[in-house]
């Protein structure tokens, strides 16, 4: 039950228009690990996540969750354990009030009304938008929508939490709150982000994707300090590491 290992073997995917978004990706995520996936725009991060959740099926290769291969047959079972926060919150929110949206998932799993209520309240409290409970999602600001989208997923109590660009549009306080949520969430989590400081803060392992392939995989500190690798993949060393190395070299007064 608690084996939420995720294994990806030689994954490849082309969109119907012929764009080969994923060329050949393999990696294993162990139970309880937190993994950051980074890469330039269009490198294939979002596509990879959708393949992990069976929103699309790979043209080659395989995804295994626990020891179960992801197929149309095992989809429903696997989706009970994996949850995704979409890059675009508008894709995630579709009902008439924040409450209904957050309650949608728990209701689908036939929880009792009181249980649904508690889950919704908890989730909204966690992301700090309890006061927006009855507002229509389309009337929220960008960052509030993001928070609501995250709440919809937290209310599902997933075993594996997957987030596509969770901090885009969040103000510093909300971003900090999200980082705290992520740190408290002690199951497996997978996060794609351009916010490398977030990845540094919350992920043990980092996978660098470049043009649909894995360019590097390793402990986050190590990967994110590798300037040469990051530049090759059109990324930059995060500010906090730069500062740290400056301080380490005692050069901070030279600049």
């Amino acid at each position: 039950m608690s084996h939420h290992k995720i294994e990806v073997r030689n994954l490849a995917y082309s969109y119907p228009d012929g764009c080969q978004a994923i060329r050949d990706i393999s990696f294993t995520i162990r139970h309880g690990e937190s993994v950051g996936i980074i890469g330039a725009n269009g490198s294939g991060k979002s596509t990879l996540l959708m393949l992990l959740l069976g929103i699309m099926f790979p043209s080659k290769g395989q995804v295994l969750v626990g020891d179960v291969a992801l197929t149309k047959k095992t989809l429903a079972m696997i989706r009970q354990r994996l949850q995704l926060v979409f890059q675009d919150s508008d894709d995630q929110l579709f009902t008439t009030s924040v409450f209904d949206d957050v309650a949608f998932g728990p209701r689908n799993y036939n929880l009792s009304p009181t249980e649904v209520d508690t889950r919704v309240d908890e989730a909204l409290e966690q992301v700090g938008i309890a006061h927006l409970k009855y507002k229509a999602p389309y009337k929220l600001s960008g960052g509030q929508k993001k928070a609501a989208a995250i709440a919809t997923v937290l209310a599902m109590h997933p075993d594996v939490l997957i987030m596509d660009e969770p901090t885009s549009g969040l103000d510093p306080k909300s971003r900090r709150r999200l980082i705290d949520i992520l740190k408290c969430f002690d199951h497996t989590k997978i996060i794609t982000s351009h916010d490398l400081d977030l990845v540094l803060d919350t992920c043990q392992i980092t996978i660098v994707i470049n043009d649909g392939t894995v360019a590097a995989i390793g402990p986050t500190e190590e990967v994110l300090s590798n300037r040469e690798l990051l530049e090759r993949c059109d990324l930059e060393v995060p500010l906090s590491i730069k500062l740290r190395s400056l301080q380490g070299n005692g050069r901070h007064d030279a600049d």
């Binding site: 429903a76 989706r79 209701r107 689908n108 009304p113």
Partner: peptide
Amino acid sequence: DRAQRVHYAMGLRGFQGRYPDDG
């Protein structure tokens, strides 16, 4: 396209062709 993505999001949260009961 957007309807499709919304439908994905519904599927991910356990939607199987029937709106959940509102209790």
